[in-house]
């Protein structure tokens, strides 16, 4: 009988200890939450919780430092790669990651992102791309798709006046400083597991001081896309993935 199975020796999946017990503030179905757990599990499985320092951004994940049970610093908007550089230059043997959304990383922090990647700073950049500013209430992001509606592109993003969606991963992949750049998602079990594997690879490369690793997670924003979580994941598959295709963008041979 099923009840008999619930005992410690049969446990096959439980929340990782690298996440705290705080209830995540993210909206129902948000990819931030799953991405947090995949990154935390990667840190857990590599046994590097005590050697990892994270940097939280400004945006929906501004409070990421409450959830990752590792030492964390909260950066100013867009400045996480500079903060990470400062940490890594004085503590070169620690594992350092930044966790940033599309506004933080690809708009206000573009210079910091590009130059950290160009220097080949040995840290992991986790980039959540949901094509919208979530925390401030659904404004256009640098990654908002063409014709996609937001509160600041209410008739859809007009690329003639608002610019085109920015493929930051392809951009940084062209720099010699980056070692591993990949785009994933966390909306299905298989995709989430792939994302975790990518995080683990990136952290292992960091140990070997191979250069900057950037893992983009194409994600949903049910609240600001104004859909249910299930609808948002379907919309993401149909609209985001054709433009932001999943897979390795730059991977070591």
């Amino acid at each position: 009988m099923a009840e008999n199975l619930i005992k410690p020796e049969n446990l096959v999946y439980d929340k990782t200890k690298v996440l705290t017990d705080r209830v995540l503030h993210y909206c129902p179905g948000c990819g931030h939450s799953t991405t947090h757990r995949m990154l935390a599990e990667a840190i857990d499985e590599l046994g590097i919780q005590g050697e990892t320092i994270g940097i939280a951004p400004v945006g929906c994940s501004v409070l990421a430092y409450y959830y990752f049970d590792v030492d964390m610093t909260e950066a100013a908007h867009g400045r996480a790669p500079a903060v990470a550089t400062g940490i890594k230059r004085v503590l070169p043997d620690k594992y350092v990651f930044t966790y940033q959304g599309d506004g933080d990383l690809a708009a206000i922090g573009t210079a910091e992102t590009i130059h950290a990647c160009n220097r080949g700073e040995n840290f992991l950049i986790v980039f959540i791309n949901n094509g919208i500013y979530g925390m401030t209430g659904g404004q256009m992001a640098p990654t908002t798709l063409e014709n996609m509606k937001s509160t600041t592109s209410p008739r859809g993003r007009d690329v003639k006046t608002m610019g085109s969606p920015l493929k930051i991963s392809e951009l940084v992949a062209s720099l010699p400083g980056t070692y591993y750049v990949a785009r994933h998602s966390v909306h299905t079990p298989a995709n989430a597991r792939k994302t975790k594997r990518a995080f683990k690879k990136a952290l292992e490369y960091q140990k070997e001081k191979k250069g900057t690793c950037l893992i983009e997670v194409v994600s949903n924003c049910p609240s600001n896309w104004k859909m249910t979580p299930i609808e948002s994941n379907k919309w993401m598959e149909e609209n985001m993935f054709p433009f932001y295709s999943l897979g390795d963008i730059k991977a070591p041979k």
Binding site: R79, A84, A111, H115
Partner: peptide, 26 residues
Amino acid sequence: MAVLQAESEIAAINMVYGAAGCGKKA
């Protein structure tokens, strides 16, 4: 001592923020 020419003054002070947060003299 680490010395780095940053991409901007903004980046430089945020690098200081990161290093200072590690208890280092920046």
